[in-house]
Each structure stands twice: as structure tokens, then as C-alpha cells.
Design a protein around this nucleic acid. Structure first.
Length: 928
RNA sequence: AGGCGCGUAGCUCAGUGGUAGAGCACUACCUUGACACGGUAGGGGUCCCCGGUUCGAAACCGGGCGCGCCUACCA
């Protein structure tokens, strides 16, 4: 089989996704006869309007790593995918399309409009699922659900009816958040506050009835005065005692309004101490109205224009009305003035329009008892939130929760299963009740999209039917999602799951952070600092990137802004190369999951592409030397007698342990970093180099053992890395294990091999090798410091009083010779004559230093050597001073643990010994 | 205003009581039979500041400064 010199992710990755799919790797088994333990993850269903962004890529990487890891460990894994119908977002998209035809949804009608949305969905919607495949997600796509599927609608209806029958779902008239742009009610959570907006505080006066006295109030929304039904003062405010019980004249309406006293609303110290009260358009005022029995006058139409209650201002839109009211007040001499004021503006999370509190009749879901259960489930540990810090936020939300306004005045969504009769009757049922004939109409409103999402962990499995899948896969194991939807989704699933299934929907909640740009700024369309993961996977020029993210900005400026957001791209030329999905995944996995912000540096991704190339070439090398050795993936750990082989097997064992621990503890970064380190440093830098000694100079027996170990280590390394970097590992595994089968045609797949468990390794072997590495390192440092060319072979003498070390060095002298290019065989001795004109490196050990003397006469100058020794000396002295101080400090010897003291003594002795040797070496420098 | 989080090498980040770590970037040398998407070696840090606990603090506690996010908001 051809083995190109460099790894090409684009060529390789393309090959494997369909391969896995064809082998049924992703499938979960419903059947009761399948006795494997289950592992279930629900993928947060992305919006049907959405396309893959880097946040999805992060979550896919995490979830796929968890899923693949469990699958390899023999779990019956279900990764449940799906798509969310995203009520408002989708409706807005299709409305915008209609607008291009010059039509509104009201003109085409509800039925036609809904048809159009479905058509749009079939053509354009849900493309994200294809993109999720690109990054390697092994979800069970055959089970994918759309929240508007009939089975989902069935579940939503059932849930609604049950909740209504239980008295938890009710209809009420109250002040709610209204988005005039969407013309719909919103839940509290869908309102986003724009902080610190520049506005003004406008002051005007009401005249006291029957006098000339003026009472000055202030407002940031002057037009709301049209709905004022009182002015409140503090009962204890001496300035206004004489006004108690008086009334004020409304300047534009034919009414007077009372002056009420209210200690809750009014802060005497703020402003004039008098507050206008608009119960129908302000949450605080609404409560004040209830306390004081005030009228509630709604002055707004659903589209945000003023209604007939606004008298002369009726018909104006909010903004114009504000100007008009101010002007009219000025004309009447009632305006007092205005000053700049910073305020927070509530905006609709979807449309961005300014939200207006408005009195309206809506459906609400009672939250208190369900919220309590959801709190208890976490407090009692039935569900664990990771990182645990988030529990506090979760509790705070649920302990202060308001009833959930679930009805939306949209056309796209699950229509509320309530019918209203001609005489005000209300019927809630699974389908239109027979008695609801002539004169009855179904509630036109739909349910909040999050209501259907809240049922997801069981609705996707067939609820309310008792299905095999529901039986087997509820509750799920882990839920992994961004912390930004902790309230929207996670908390609500908890409540619904506990309510309907009497059991928590998931055992662990893993909350991920937000991917931000390289400088830590949140990615946003406005800033244009987003990155499309597909551009990273497939490659793209920076011009192409900014054309997408900042389409309205001139190219040069856009490029400047882009480079500012991603400084590391300065070293990348004209664009991103194709990093490949593996590199993108690996990068995202190396951030600790507890990080709230994940600053994506493209340069870092490059590093993992290089890592894939390293794996590629290590495999290439191995296969060249394995010759006809058949790699049996089922082989047990081979017997090893040679130190290098025993060592790498030990390291493999420990790396596997660390990898598993990381996955268990949701520390993917620890898994990823250890496997990276293990493969690059232990396998490539040391083991492959050592294996060359055997392959080129060893006996046939040695070669045979080394081939077996090399093949084994490589095969297991690929397994270990597979959940993180599935593509390159599958490719290399196929090449390694089935060299005669054309790629993509074998039946076996790495995705279904057992994940190595690992263990503690062999400490004695690792300690021995550690010393050899240090001695080799010391010799290399000398070479490098003195600029000795690689091809120059140099005589070496090694001396030490450490008998164990000497013995090991003698046995493994070829390591030293080969890896330091020393001449002939180094002389290894306890003491005795040293080479004239040699420089020495000192390696401290716990049984006397190892000295490495290298003959460099004629190759270096005395000064160079003195510089080197002095630097070494300085370093040792610094460390020695630290440990000496520690040992001398009062209390340390008395109070520190025995082993710590012992260690300190040993360090001291070893450094002192090394310093003595170094001083000797210094005197030798004269001979150079 | 409250809550939460963060501040460690030029950059992105690990490290949670025992002599400061990784990757990238940087410097020098090297095309050595897997890999220049590479190798070998090296330089670089008052661990934000101030107190306290401790024999010992980057880590634990208190206070401050700076940054970010969330919740609630004064008309």
C-alpha cells in the first residue's frame, strides 16, 4: 500500500465517515436481549435555521469523545440527535423571504404560511446535521427527531393536557413581556437587557387638582404617562404630607389620578420622591397597582403603536409618541427638563426589538413545585452538575423562578390544545372534543419552543407510549451543553423529566464554556469575529473568511479586524490550511472543560495538525520495519525482555490509565495532553529512536521482540487516541492491521475495538530509563552548547560511584553511543583516569552523581567551557541555597512530614555532590 | 446592586500545600535512512497587589485592583 510522506487530512477524513455508518457503528440497540450497559447522551438539538458554529464543534467534540470512549468500552451507546423547530427564529426567516415577494404572512394566511415553512425546512433547514457529520459525530442519525415531528407533537399535547388536568397549566391575564416586532409574548428568559444604553431622564409635572401646585415626576419612557393611573409618594415623606388623599389632573386625558402612598415603590432619596405609576406597562407599577387598587390602562396595540386609550396620541408608534408627548408637555408648560441617563433596555432575544411590558391573557405553567423537585434532585446528588460551581446558579434560578409564560402568538409551533366556546367555556383535550362544534375555536397560539425541548429526553424515545427505547434509554447518562442554556433547557428538562417520568432525565450535567476569539472577545455577528469550523477543517483564505463574517465591511478593513481578533494568524500567510476535523477536535479537547471562555488560537490547531502528521509518520516508519509482521489487533501484551520494550509498555500502561481517568473525570484536557505527550515524547522521541538501534544493529531475537512491541504499542496508541482524533487513527489502524486490504473495505473498525484500560506501569524500569535519559541529555547538552556538529564522533568516559547506574549504563551502552554519537564504546568506570582535555557534565542521582566526560580538546575553548560550567554551577547553587534554607529554618525539621525532610536531605546531598564534581570539571578546563 | 468566574513565560493555557509546567512563539545548531508538518539543545516568569494561616503559599483565608459573564434593577 502506498504511504505518502505527509499526512493529508482532507484526503483521509473523507474516507471514513461513510465507512463507520455502513458498519452500523452509531446504532444503539433497543432490544431487551442486549445486555450491555447503556450510555446515553442527548445532543442539544440545534436550531433548524442554524449552521455549524464553533460552539457546536466544541460540543460535538466533547460528546463524540465521550460516546466513542464508552462505545469502545463495550457500552450500548445512544447519542440522540435532533433538530429544534425554533419558533420565532424560523418564522422570522420565512417572513423575510415572503417580504421579498412583497407579502406578509397575514396576507398569505396561516395555512399557506405554515406550508411555506415546511417547504423551507425541507429545502434549507437542518443542514447543520451534515456539518456535524463532518467533524466526526457518531450520533445515531436514524433516530434523529425534529421537534415538530408528529410524534413530538403528540408528546407535547399529552404533556399539556396532563399538566392542565393537574392544575399546573393555567390561563391568566397578567403583565407579560411583549415583543412588538415578533408580536408575541415572551418568557422572562427570552428578554435580554442591553446594559448602559444612553437615554434621558425626563421630568414633568402633574397639577394638583384644585390648586396651582405642581408635583414633579421623572421617567425614561415619557409616553407611558398616557397610561398613568396614579403618582406614588412615600408615606413618611414630609414634603408631601399635605398631598395625601389629593388627586392630580392628567394633562391629556379626561381623568384625574390619585396620589397614593407606597413605601415599597418609592425611594424618598431618589429624584423628587414622587413616582408616576403605569400599572399596565411596568412590572413594579403593576405590583403597586395591585397593592393600591389602581386602574390598569393599556395604551399599546400589539404592534407597538398606541391605542385608543392614548387619546390624541392614538395611532402613533412608540418612538413618535414619546417625542409627541414631550412636545405636548412642553407646550402646556409642564415639562421640567431632562438630563442624560444611563439605562438598561429590555430587548427581545430573537428580534432585538424593545420589549414592552403589557397586560395580556396567556397560558402559564406553575413552576414552584416542579422547581423544588429539580432543586432536590441536584441537592441529593441524583443529578450531578459539572463543574459544581454551576449548582449555585441553578439553585438561585429555580428558587426564584416565576411561572413560565408558555404561549406564543406565532404560527410556527405546537398549537395549544385548548378550545374556547361561544360562552367563554374552555376545553383542553388531546384532540378537538366532540362537544366543541359550531362556535368553538381552537386557541390560535402555539407553545414556546422550549416547552417541546423540555420534553426531549423522553419524547425522543417515544413517550407517552411505553417503548423499548424509553425503557432502555431513560434516564440518560450525561447531558453536555453550554452554560448559557442552563435555565432555558437544562432546568426545564429536569423539571419535566421528574414530573412525567418520576426520575431525573440525566445523571450528570456537563456545562461547557463559550468559545471566544483569540483575544478573549465573545464571537458575534456584529463584531464579525466568528470562525466557521468548516473553514478550519477544509481550509480557507482569510479573504474568504472575512467575506462571510463581515460581508458589509471593506475587505482591507475586514482583514485588519480579523487579524486583530486572531493575532496568531499573522504567521499563517494567506489563510487557514485544511487543518482537518481531527486537529480541530483535539484543539477543543485540550481546554479544561471548566473554562468559561475558550480562546481559540488558530496556531494551536496547527499544532495538532502537525501531531496528526507525527502519528502518520511514526506509523510509516513502523510499517517499514515491521516488514511482514502481522499485527493482530487482538494480541495480548507481548512478552518483553529488553529495557526499551519494557519501558514503552510501562509508559503505555500509565498513559492509558491517565487517559481513562481524564475521561471519567470529565477532564478531556488531561486525556488529550497525556496522549499527545506520550505519543510524541515517549513513543516518537525515545522509543522509535531506540528501536532503530535494534533494527539496525540488534540480533534477530531482539528484532523480533521489538517488532512485536512496536506493533502493539502503536495499535494501542491508535485506540487510545481514537475518541479524540477518530479519522487519522482509523486510517492508520487500517493500514497497520490490514495492510493488504484496500482502505475502506475491511470489515473491522477501530471504532469498535476495546479501549485499553491501563495500569500503574513498572516504576523500576521507568526509573532506570529516566537516568539513562538524563545522562544522554547531559551529553547532548554539551555537544549542543559547544556547537559540535552531529557528524563529529567524540570519545566519552562515564564515571560514577552509583553502581546501579553504572551497571545500567554498561548494559545499555548502545543507547548512549547511538543517541549522543559518541566514538566507539564509552569507558564506564567508578573512578580513575579521565580523558585529558575533556569537559564534564554532571547528573545528580540519589547515590552519587554521574559524570559524563567528553573529549573536546581542540573543538572548544576554555572560555566557552567556563561559561557553561558557571551557568550550571549558578543553577545548582540557587537550588542548593533554597533547600539549605529550608532545612535550616526553624520548625521544618520538627514539623514537616518525615518523607519531605528525607527528600530535602537527599536533594541537598545530591546537589552538593554535583557541585563538587562541577568544581573538578572547572579545574579541567585549563587543559582545553 | 448582588452572584459567579478569571488574573501563572511574549501568546493560549495546565498546575490547588513541599525547589514554577506544556504547546506555540523566540535563539543556536542540524536535511542524522518516519516526519523540516522534523530533530537536538537553549533563553525566558517579583505566579495582579497587600495582609494573614503554616515549618513551608502560585495554591488556603481576608482585603484591594483589573477583566469577563449572569441575575435583579431607581422612577
Amino acid at each position: 500500500m502506498e504511504f505518502p510522506k505527509a499526512y493529508d487530512p482532507a484526503e483521509v477524513e473523507r474516507r471514513w465517515y461513510a465507512f463507520w455508518e455502513a458498519r452500523g457503528v452509531f446504532r444503539a440497540e433497543d432490544g431487551a436481549e442486549d445486555k450491555r450497559p447503556t450510555y446515553v447522551v442527548h445532543m442539544p438539538p440545534p436550531n433548524v435555521t442554524g449552521s455549524l458554529h464553533i460552539g457546536h464543534a466544541l460540543q460535538c467534540s466533547w460528546q463524540d469523545a465521550l460516546i466513542r470512549w464508552h462505545r469502545m468500552r463495550g457500552f450500548n451507546t445512544l447519542w440522540q440527535p435532533g433538530i429544534d423547530h425554533a419558533g420565532i427564529a424560523t418564522q422570522l426567516v420565512v417572513e423575510r423571504l415572503l417580504l421579498r415577494e412583497g407579502k406578509t404572512r397575514h396576507e398569505v394566511g396561516r395555512e399557506e404560511f405554515t406550508k411555506r415553512i415546511w417547504k423551507w425546512k425541507e429545502e434549507k433547514g437542518g443542514r447543520i446535521a451534515e456539518q456535524q457529520r463532518v467533524i466526526g459525530s457518531t450520533a445515531d442519525w436514524a433516530r434523529s427527531k425534529f421537534t415538530m415531528d408528529s410524534s413530538m407533537t403528540n408528546a407535547v399535547t399529552e404533556a399539556f393536557v396532563q399538566l392542565f388536568d393537574q392544575g399546573l397549566m393555567y390561563r391568566a391575564t397578567r403583565l407579560i413581556n411583549w415583543c412588538p416586532e415578533c408580536q408575541s409574548a415572551l418568557s422572562d428568559l427570552e428578554v435580554e437587557t442591553e446594559e448602559g444604553a444612553n437615554g434621558e431622564l425626563f421630568e414633568f409635572a402633574y397639577l394638583v387638582e384644585g390648586s396651582d401646585e405642581r408635583l414633579v415626576v421623572a421617567t425614561t419612557r415619557p409616553e407611558t404617562m398616557l397610561g398613568d393611573t396614579a403618582v406614588a409618594i412615600h408615606p413618611d415623606d414630609p414634603r408631601y404630607t399635605h398631598l395625601h388623599g389629593k388627586r392630580l389632573v392628567h394633562p391629556f386625558m379626561d381623568r384625574t389620578i390619585p396620589i397614593v402612598t407606597d413605601a415599597i415603590l418609592v425611594d424618598m432619596k431618589f429624584g423628587t420622591g414622587a413616582v408616576k405609576v403605569t400599572p399596565a406597562h411596568d412590572f413594579n407599577d403593576f405590583a403597586t397597582g395591585k397593592r393600591n387598587g389602581l386602574d390598569e390602562i393599556n395604551i399599546l396595540n400589539k404592534d407597538g403603536t398606541l391605542n385608543e386609550n392614548a387619546g390624541p396620541f392614538a395611532g402613533l408608534d412608540r418612538k413618535r409618541a414619546r417625542t409627541a408627548v414631550k412636545k405636548a408637555l412642553e407646550e402646556k408648560g409642564l415639562a421640567v427638563g431632562s438630563k442624560p441617563h444611563r439605562l438598561n433596555i429590555p430587548r427581545c432575544g430573537r428580534s432585538g426589538g424593545v420589549v414592552e411590558p403589557m397586560i395580556s391573557t396567556q397560558w402559564f405553567l406553575k413552576m414552584d413545585s416542579m422547581a423544588k423537585s429539580a432543586v432536590d434532585a441536584v441537592k441529593t446528588g441524583k443529578t450531578e452538575i459539572i463543574p459544581a460551581d454551576w449548582s449555585k446558579t441553578y439553585f438561585h434560578f429555580l428558587e426564584n423562578i416565576q411561572d413560565w409564560c408558555v404561549s406564543r402568538q406565532l404560527w410556527w409551533g405546537h398549537q395549544i390544545p385548548a378550545w374556547y366556546g361561544p360562552n367563554g367555556e374552555v376545553r383542553v383535550a388531546r384532540s378537538r372534543p366532540l362537544e366543541c362544534g359550531e362556535g368553538w375555536t381552537q386557541d390560535p397560539d402555539v407553545l414556546d419552543t422550549w416547552f417541546s425541548s423540555a420534553l426531549w429526553p423522553f419524547s425522543t424515545l417515544g413517550w407517552p407510549d411505553k417503548t423499548a427505547a424509553l425503557d432502555k434509554f431513560y434516564p440518560s447518562s450525561d447531558l453536555e451543553t453550554g452554560y448559557d442554556i442552563l435555565f432555558f433547557w437544562v432546568a426545564r428538562m429536569m423539571m419535566m423529566g421528574l414530573h412525567f417520568m418520576k426520575e431525573v432525565p440525566f445523571k450528570r450535567v456537563i456545562l461547557s464554556g463559550i468559545v471566544v476569539d483569540e483575544t478573549g472577545e465573545k464571537m458575534s455577528k456584529v463584531k464579525g469575529n466568528g470562525v466557521d469550523p468548516l473553514d478550519l477543517i477544509y481550509g480557507a483564505t482569510f479573504k474568504e473568511v472575512v467575506a462571510k463574517t463581515m460581508p458589509d465591511t471593506p475587505e482591507a478593513e475586514a482583514l485588519t479586524r480579523f487579524k486583530k481578533a486572531y493575532p496568531s494568524t499573522a504567521q499563517m500567510g494567506e489563510g487557514f490550511p485544511a487543518f482537518g476535523a481531527d486537529a480541530v477536535r483535539m484543539t477543543l479537547l485540550t481546554f479544561p472543560p471548566s473554562n468559561r471562555r475558550i480562546a481559540l488560537a488558530p496556531k494551536r490547531i496547527e499544532g495538532y495538525r502537525f501531531f496528526a502528521n507525527k502519528m502518520w509518520n511514526a506509523t510509516k516508519y513502523s510499517m517499514e520495519h515491521l516488514a511482514d509482521t502481522k499485527i493482530d489487533p487482538d494480541a495480548k501484551t507481548p512478552e518483553a525482555t529488553m529495557l526499551a520494550n519494557r519501558w514503552i509498555l510501562s509508559r503505555l500502561d500509565r498513559a492509558a490509565k491517565i487517559a481513562n481517568d481524564g475521561m471519567t473525570n470529565v477532564r478531556f484536557d488531561e486525556t488529550a495532553n497525556e496522549l499527545y505527550r506520550f505519543f510524541w515524547t515517549d513513543v516518537c522521541d525515545w522509543y522509535l529512536e531506540l528501536s532503530k538501534i535494534t533494527f539496525f544493529h540488534g540480533t534477530e531475537d531482539e528484532r523480533k521482540e521489538t517488532r512485536a512491541v512496536l506493533g502493539f504499542v502503536l495499535e494501542r496508541s491508535l485506540r487510545l487516541l481514537h475518541p479524540l482524533m477518530p479519522y487519522v487513527t482509523e486510517e492508520l489502524w487500517q493500514r497497520l492491521c490490514f495492510p493488504d486490504t484496500p482502505l475502506g473495505e475491511s470489515w473491522a473498525t477501530l471504532a469498535l475495538r476495546a479501549y485499553p484500560e491501563g495500569g500503574e506501569g513498572d516504576a523500576a524500569v521507568e526509573k532506570e530509563v529516566d537516568l539513562l535519559q538524563k545522562v544522554i541529555g547531559a551529553a547532548r547538552t554539551i555537544r549542543s552548547e559547544h556547537d559540535i556538529k552531529w557528524v563529529v564522533e567524540i570519545p566519552v568516559v562515564i564515571r560514577s560511584e552509583n553502581a546501579t547506574a553504572l551497571e545500567s549504563l554498561r548494559r545499555n551502552v548502545s543507547w548512549f553511543t547511538s543517541l549522543t554519537k559518541s566514538k566507539g564504546t564509552p569507558v564506564i568506570e567508578t573512578s580513575g583516569a579521565r580523558i585529558n582535555g575533556a569537559v564534564a557534565a554532571i547528573v545528580p542521582t540519589d547515590a552519587g552523581a554521574v559524570e559524563v566526560h567528553i573529549e573536546l580538546r581542540g573543538l572548544v575553548t576554555k572560555d566557552e567551557e567556563l561559561t557553561r560550567i558557571d551557568r550550571e554551577k549558578k543553577r545548582l547553587e540557587k537550588d542548593l541555597a533554597a533547600v539549605t534554607k529550608k532545612l535550616g529554618s526553624p520548625g521544618f525539621v520538627d514539623r514537616a512530614p518525615k518523607e519531605v525532610i528525607e527528600e530535602a536531605h537527599q536533594q541537598k546531598a545530591s546537589m552538593e555532590n554535583a557541585l563538587t564534581r562541577l568544581a573538578e570539571a572547572r579545574s579541567f578546563a585549563d587543559e582545553l
